[in-house]
Amino acid sequence: MNKIYFILLQLVFFMAAAPLLSGLITKIKNSLRLRKGQSIWQPYYNLSKLFLKEEVVSDTASWIFQAAPFVVLGSTLCAALLIPVFIFYTPLNYLGDLLALIFILALGRFFLALAALDTGSSFGGLGSSREMFISSLVEPALCLVVFSISLRSGSTSLAAFGAVSGVQASSIIAGAALFLIALAETARIPVDNQETHLELTMVHEAMVLEYSGRPLALIEMAAYVKQTIFFLLIAQIVFPVGLPVSGSLAEIVFWSSWYLGRLVIVAAIVAVVEVSVAKMRLFRVADFLGFAFVLGIIASICAILGV
């Protein structure tokens, strides 16, 4: 019974906090550009607006288009449940490990890419092709990051990963590699740009172009959750949280606030990167992710050497 509470609590955490993280990044970006910008709560307004809006479905589309938002949301939330969020507890450890996490996220992406092709729009095909291109190049780098962190924790288990404390050179390099991967996976500059609807630059936005109303809200929610998953993983690698020693209230409050604080740090770094670099050409993404791959190898070497 206890377990179900934890599962629900974790779901609520993700659904509630994930859009805020996006709002925060936008806020920091706008502050850096010396703009007033939108409110930090804007993603919530957007979601509630989408929930009230009318839904338009292309008459070319099949059931794949209609089913995809639920598959995307379901798989992303399922991945979110595998992550150790509340310091010491992974509610669904029996479900899978770090490697399974990669494949679960791939399930949602697969359906979204199919849905993009389903409407027969050139934009959809463009987004779908680019998304699969980027994600397939992400895969080896991500695998090496998982490899290097599991060399440290001794297994691919997420519970063991959550219990690792202390930072080594290997974890910082792995965190850097995962940061590059996260930029690619969460549609951020320099790989993709969330703020524009220009066909030359779009990836994620092109894929979901035909969605509107509630299905779009579900997909957007899934994208926020996915982003939080990646940021949590980076935070756990680079700023690990130790197990509470005494279990006193003060300690729990301290660790919990550090827990959320480190997410803010990752978000701030993403914002700084986004305002300071330019979007790169699609075919240079291969070099970008190749760099992440090399970082993954270096992280693995460091982990093997034990530093």
Binding site: F51, V56, D59, F70, G74
Partner: peptide, 27 residues
């Protein structure tokens, strides 16, 4: 878990919907 979470999404979708989806051409 995948099916349960997918269905949860479907329930939210059903409960919040006020209008039926409109079928139109691809943009």
């Amino acid at each position: 878990a995948l099916i349960a979470l997918g269905i949860a999404g479907l329930v939210v979708y059903r409960l919040t919907g006020r209008k039926k989806a409109v079928m139109l051409n691809t943009w």
